[in-house]
Nucleic acid binder design. Structure first.
Length: 931
RNA sequence: GGGCGAUUAGCUCAGGGGUAGAGCGCCACGUUGACAUCGUGGAGGUCGGUGGUUCGAAACCACCAUCGCCCACCA
């Protein structure tokens, strides 16, 4: 083995072999475990969020697989309608073409080409992450099977009246020329203005003094479509005007003054212009009052040809300026106030979205939402952490009908056909429609141009990927799936819709649990984004990247090129040496360690470096184990190490495994990882491995003792590798293949092993006590050494004073171990009657471990050291006595707590006496010292 | 306007009614036969604030402060 851990030498070969040997396929077993991957966009690349999420899913999957459970991690990709179409359109634009130049069929073909060309990229990256998805079952949302599922669902919902077509106000993206669902619209505060316009009262409505009403608006250009002015029904100022009319400026149309509760009399002037075709509230008011709806815009959000000639074809924002100017010219501009308002933008294009009147398809959601709410309420589905269910409920309880049609070309085309009279027929295809409705061939049919929202097919993912609507073996075995691992950002987009559709079509919940993880942010808590230039590529963390390449990567292809210098500067400051190669296992272990219950996760490079070091530690411990084995005979026949340390490490191993089991069951990968780290470094390496040297390097030790030590050393490591494997698949496999033969375990791959089971025989409290005694002894000597700056290489002579029979027995039993770990040259009990030499002292219960000073130790420093300890003991005693002197504590606290406290007081008291005596002796020594 | 979360060591974060934990960083010593991507020892926190519950609160409750996120139609 190399002296240092080199991840790049080991990762690919193992993955290729696992995949070749089909190790990720379901392998039987009565119990089943299934995760469906949240399908990444087919043309996407792996980002930190994916890498994190995939690590969690892979760890859970490999864990279950090792446990002998029939395990499937179902993989696939999403066609991502809008995102993919935009990518390809951008390419076309670069060639000076638009999708309309190509036409629909050619364009869609071109997207398929693009998918074929770049669709595999993220799969390659998933392999680098070690993801053990079953590649043989990979699906794509536009596969034939999945598309058929989409059609079936659409048809059934339509037949049940749960899908309908209607002319409604929708969120219109004027760049993409498509409707968006509410969820695809993001509203941010932006600085705008509130324009106050005077709307003159109609002649018969004014009464001398009163000549106009003042309305306030943030969207002046929509006034062209105003069909009323509304006031609050109880607003005294305007009572007398309700039912009268104003004359709409510019357009010169008479519009009524109506009364509606919606109006807040406190805001602005208490008069609201009503534009039913361009505002969601106004739309509802328009419905209530039977107002006409006047559309003023085109698909591009320019003023349409029904409007006054001066405005036709003007972009909405140019029209706004012109309207304001004209209103001012007409002396109807009361004032302009600065105003902060929410501006709705499309989540993909960033374009300001317009409420726009169009024909769209909708899912009637309430009947689907009801059982979906119940499933979470009654515990059929559990959110982890639990409080996300509240977020889910909040949204589900006020859920609106879902607009599912998109005016795109890339996606599942809506299976609806129209005849020349506008009748709608829904079916699998044209032939099916004709057959179902007895339409003869001379009836002209035209398929709906729209495609479905991508999330419509995503909603079917847990069952469509398993073969639905066919009744497959996979559905039978794996549905409902075990757990969905996802971020909170798509609870509404995806999780809720899967629950609704799963219950409706697959007859059960799609998953038993939903594990919601946090979002990966950068080290400052900023969201990672290209425009901020703070993106880390998981693959760069695995392979490393030099500074120049990193700078180039972060500064090319920016939407706002002017940010490049700033990004470059920040990157050079943060990564003066570029990014080192950490390897997949270190990255995965970092993600596991960060997988806490919080929402945000700051990705700190220090952590991954630490876990790379951890890998190296494991690597070298394994080198030690293997190199030692070489020098020994075959140890297969040897009994396990039955000494104190051997029994102790086995007990600690069991304890660690139990912790990992417990924490994985509750998705606390961080605590599971911590238990592995702690055991590996601080128990196995720091103690057992060092203790083993006392036997292995001891010329006097019996051969069978060495064999036994060797056996426990190698078997513990082998078991540890199995526990590590779900977290760090590569390094565990690499080392396992070398260690397994030594540990007497057969198999070609660590994937063939089974998860370790605790052995109750390993639990012996006396072992823990004895080991604790040994550790305290060694630590006592080390502390003197450390605080006195005695070189670690200097072997010490010590004298043990006031040792009890117990101490003597324990010392005798473990003398060689202690001598080795504390690096002692000699250790003797003080003969009865002798007085102890001047020493630095460690208290071990009632026993004193004395390091004679002779030439080594400074009296003053020892006094200082013990005084510090004394102070601490005194403070502790005071605290304990404070409690014990409190009558109600003694009376009301549980007996065992009081007993513990009493014992503590006694121990502190004893420590204090010993320390005081020792300090006394040192003080005398010092005063006698002529120096 | 509703809802959720956070506030613990210099930094990143666990924990949780019974004497405050980890990793990184820091200080000192050290190249002893797995590992300097290391070893040994050490320093460092009145657990955001104020009240309350309790024998006991960093933990539970209330309020407050600061920060963050989600949802919502105030023109």
């Amino acid at each position: 083995m190399d002296k240092t851990y080199q991840p790049k030498n080991i990762e690919r070969k193992h993955y290729e072999r696992w995949e070749r040997e089909g190790r990720f396929k379901p392998q039987g077993g009565d119990e089943a475990f299934c995760i469906v991957i949240p399908p990444p966009n087919v043309t996407g690349t792996l980002h930190m969020g994916h890498a994190f999420q995939d690590t969690i899913m892979d760890t859970l999957t490999r864990y279950q697989r090792l446990r002998g459970v029939n395990t499937l991690w179902q993989h696939g990709t999403d066609h991502a309608g809008i995102a993919t179409q935009m990518v390809v359109e951008r390419q076309l634009n670069a060639e000076g073409l638009s999708r309309r130049d190509l036409g629909r069929d050619a364009f869609v073909e071109r997207v398929w080409d693009w998918k074929a060309k770049s669709g595999g990229h993220i799969n390659g990256q998933l392999r680098r992450m070690g993801a053990s998805v079953d590649w043989s079952r990979e699906r794509f949302t536009m596969d034939d099977g999945l598309s058929a599922a989409v059609r079936d669902v659409f048809i059934q919902l339509h037949e049940e009246g749960l899908i309908y077509r209607g002319k409604r106000l929708v969120n219109w993206d004027p760049v993409l020329h498509t409707a968006l669902s509410d969820l695809e619209v993001l509203s941010e505060d932006e600085q705008g203005s509130l324009w106050h316009f005077r709307y003159p009262l109609a002649d018969d409505s004014s009464n001398g003094d009163e000549t106009h009403l003042i309305v306030a608006t943030t969207r002046p250009e929509t006034m062209l479509g105003d069909t009323a002015v509304a006031v609050h029904p109880n607003d005294e100022r305007y009572q007398h005007l309700i039912g009268k009319h104003v004359r709409l400026p510019i357009v010169d149309r008479l519009i009524p003054i109506i009364a509606d509760d919606y109006v807040d009399p406190e805001f602005g002037t208490g008069c609201v212009k009503i534009t039913p075709a361009h505002d969601f509230n106004d739309y509802e008011i328009g419905q209530r009052h039977n107002l006409p709806m006047i559309n003023v815009l085109t698909d591009d959000a320019a003023i349409n040809d029904d409007m006054p000639a001066d405005y036709r074809g003007l972009d909405r924002f140019d029209a706004r300026k012109k309207i304001v100017a004209q209103v001012e010219t007409l002396e109807l501009l009361e004032k302009i106030e600065p105003h902060t308002l929410k501006v709705p933008r499309g989540d993909r294009t960033g374009a300001v979205v317009e409420p726009y009147l169009t024909d769209q398809w909708y899912v009637k959601i309430a009947p689907l939402a009801e059982p979906a709410i119940a499933a979470v309420e009654n515990g059929d589905i559990k959110f982890v952490p639990e409080n996300w269910s509240k977020t889910y409920f909040d949204w589900m309880h006020k859920i609106q009908d879902w607009c599912i049609s998109r005016q795109l070309w890339w996606g599942h085309r809506i299976p609806a056909w129209y005849d020349d009279n506008g009748n709608i027929f829904v079916g699998k295809d044209e032939a099916d429609v004709r057959a179902k409705h007895n339409l003869s061939d001379d009836v002209n049919l035209r398929q709906d141009d729209d495609v479905l929202d991508t999330w419509f097919s995503s909603a079917l993912w847990p069952f469509s990927t398993l073969g639905w609507p066919e009744k497959t073996q996979e559905l039978d075995s794996f549905y409902p799936t075990s757990v969905l691992v996802t971020g909170f950002d798509i609870i509404f987009f995806w999780v809720a819709r899967m629950i609704m559709f799963g219950l409706k079509f697959a007859g059960d919940v799609p998953f038993r649990e939903v594990y919601i993880h946090g979002l990966i942010r950068d080290q400052d808590g900023q969201k990672m984004s290209k425009s901020k230039g703070n993106v880390l590529d998981p693959i760069d963390l695995i392979d490393g990247i030099d500074l120049e390449s990193l700078v180039a990567k972060r500064t090319t292809g920016l939407m706002q090129p002017h940010l490049a210098p700033r990004i470059e500067k920040a990157t050079r400051r943060q990564f003066p040496e570029g990014i080192a190669e950490f390897g997949t296992d270190a990255l995965r272990f970092t993600f596991a360690s960060l997988a806490t219950t919080g929402r945000d996760i700051r990705f700190d490079l220090g952590r991954i470096e630490g876990y790379r070091n951890f890998c190296n530690k494991l690597w070298n411990a394994s080198r030690f184990v293997l190199s030692t084995t070489e020098t020994l005979d075959d140890n297969q026949s040897a009994e396990a190490d039955d000494s104190l340390s051997g029994r102790w490490i086995r007990a600690r191993f069991d304890h660690m495994v139990a912790t990992v089991d417990r924490q994985l069951a509750r998705y606390r990968l961080d605590l599971a990882a911590q238990a592995i780290y702690e055991f590996t470094w601080h128990e196995y390496c720091d103690w057992y491995l060092e203790l083993s040297k006392a036997t292995l390097y001891d010329d006097d030790a019996q051969a069978h003792a060495k064999q036994a030590t060797m056996r426990t050393l190698s078997r513990t490591l082998e078991g540890l590798l199995r526990v590590m494997h779900p977290f760090m698949p590569f390094i565990s496999e690499e080392i396992w293949q070398r260690v397994a033969p030594v540990a007497g375990v057969a198999g070609d791959s660590i994937c063939d092993t089974v998860w370790p089971q605790a052995n109750p025989a390993n639990h012996d409290p006396s072992v823990a006590d004895d080991m604790q005694w040994l550790q305290t002894f060694v630590l006592g000597v080390r502390q003197i050494r450390g605080e006195m700056d005695i070189a670690p290489g200097k072997a010490l002579d010590i004298i043990l004073v006031d040792a009890s029979a117990d101490d003597r027995a324990r010392f005798a039993a473990n003398k060689k171990l202690i001598m080795k770990l504390a690096n002692l040259a000699d250790a003797d009990f003080l003969p009865a009657g002798d007085s102890e030499p001047p020493s630095a002292t460690a208290m071990h219960g009632e026993m004193k471990i004395c390091v004679p000073m002779a030439g080594l130790i400074d009296v003053e420093r020892e006094i200082e050291r013990l005084t510090k300890q004394l102070g601490k003991s005194q403070a502790d005693l005071a605290k304990t006595q404070g409690k014990l002197s409190n009558a109600s504590f003694v009376e009301r606290a549980p007996a065992d707590v009081v007993a513990t406290e009493k014992q503590r007081a006694q121990e502190h008291q004893q420590q204090i006496e010993l320390l005081e005596a020792q300090l006394d002796a040192l003080a005398k020594l010092e005063s006698n010292d002529p120096a």
